[in-house]
């Protein structure tokens, strides 16, 4: 999925992810695409690497690079991955594309001690401005799609993501707003200024917070019955 991003931008984000991972770690990359990040982790940092990818062409590309890859759909669960088999699970620019983001985050922290998640920030000022001024769904370098052909199913801001971690009772070990491919730790007004953000997460308790399907909300006022017809 990452290969949808422009190569240069993706390489910058890869670098930021790599900076979060100690040498020799065992890393699982979910939605590993052609295995570019994993290759670097293996070659430059001696990591033990494992990819998961859905797209058949990307799987072949990863295999060609010597990257071990399991073909699977993140939304179908990761049942074949045993608990805590990895030090790090990486999910870069993919969370907004899965059907059940909560599930995937929970699965990451079942499979690995720590999760590294990179998400596009829908709260960026340029996006807000586009909606405000144009009155249309925004198109940016981070979100370069029309509404009808986007692989992005969910739109979230940094604040939204923090709220999710709270709900799932996860600790944010590190939060890195990213501006023009550069990590800006402690960036002021990050939710307004960051194009995307990296979060390093771990579980606060061993207890997995179950996913709840929200009840449909009752309308504020009772809809009038049309039984008289």
């Amino acid at each position: 999925m990452k290969y949808l991003l422009a190569d240069h931008a993706a390489a910058l984000i890869d670098r930021i992810i790599m900076d979060q991972i100690p040498e020799g770690s065992r890393v699982l990359d979910l939605g590993c695409g052609d295995g570019r990040l994993l290759c670097r982790l293996r070659d430059e940092m001696g990591a033990s690497i494992q990819g998961v990818e859905r797209d058949p062409k990307a799987v072949i590309a990863a295999i060609s690079k010597g990257v071990p890859v399991i073909q699977a759909d993140l939304d179908q669960g990761l049942d074949e991955i045993p608990d805590h088999a990895f030090d790090y699970a990486v999910l870069s620019q993919t969370l907004q594309q899965v059907i059940q983001p909560e599930n995937v985050v929970n699965e990451m922290l079942r499979a690995a001690q720590r999760a590294i998640v990179v998400v596009p920030n829908f709260g960026h000022w340029r996006i807000r401005l586009q909606i405000l001024v144009n009155g249309r769904v925004p198109i940016t370098s981070e979100l370069p799609y029309d509404w009808y052909n986007t692989p992005n199913l969910h739109f979230l801001t940094m604040i939204d993501f923090r709220a999710l971690t709270e709900r799932l009772q996860l600790r944010i070990v590190r939060e890195l707003p990213i501006v023009s491919g550069v990590a800006k730790a402690g960036l002021k007004l990050a939710n307004l200024r960051a194009e995307s953000a990296l979060f390093v997460l771990e579980r606060m308790t061993n207890e997995v917070i179950p996913i709840t399907i929200p009840e449909p909300q009752k309308p504020a006022t009772e809809i009038e019955s049309d039984s008289a017809v």
């Binding site: 071990p68 073909q71 699977a72 074949e80």
Partner: peptide, 19 residues
């Protein structure tokens, strides 16, 4: 096959697996 994949990952091995 998934059983083998799980065992390999649990043993610290990496694996290419396709269904």
């Amino acid at each position: 096959s998934r059983e083998i994949v799980t065992a390999l990952l649990g043993a610290g091995k990496n694996v290419t697996y396709l269904e």
